[in-house]
């Protein structure tokens, strides 16, 4: 049971796309669409991997990542960050805060799957 992923993202169409791709690849997918209680949801669902958008309503993805890294239960949890802003400083910020992987929207579906597989050994 190592294939549970939580997608934290607010764009309904993007959620639907990721859900479709990952499900087809055999992941079990949970989704969550706001930043307020994202950390709690992660702790409660305890997924094997989190896909985290940066621009979320309520709370920024960076803040959520910081909290996750500070919490012992999620300090080593693989987190794939997605952002639509695509500037170098966003990548730097994500790396500094301990993101396991960073991808810029729009992404290629194959790359996402590959990253997921490398982050969560089968």
């Amino acid at each position: 049971m190592g294939k549970r992923v939580l997608v934290i993202e607010d764009e309904p169409n993007i959620i639907e796309a990721i859900n479709f791709i990952l499900s087809r690849d055999g992941w079990s997918v949970d989704t969550h669409s706001n930043g307020h209680d994202a950390v709690d949801v992660v702790l409660a669902k305890a997924p094997n991997l989190v896909i985290l958008d940066v621009m979320l309503p309520g709370r920024s993805g960076y803040d959520i990542l910081k909290d996750l890294r500070a919490h012992p239960q999620t300090a080593d949890l693989p987190v794939l960050m997605l952002t639509a802003r695509g500037q170098n400083k966003d990548r730097d910020m994500a790396e500094r805060l301990g993101a396991s992987c960073f991808m810029t929207k729009p992404f290629s579906n194959a790359e996402v799957l590959e990253a997921l597989r490398s982050l969560v050994p089968q």
Binding site: N13, I14, A17, F20, M55, A84, T104, P106, S108, A110
Partner: peptide, 18 residues
């Protein structure tokens, strides 16, 4: 602007690939 442009393009690319 980058964010606003990339968001719809993300959906378009993902679903086109699908």
């Amino acid at each position: 602007i980058s964010h606003e442009l990339r968001t719809p393009m993300t959906s378009i690319r993902a679903f086109s690939e699908i």
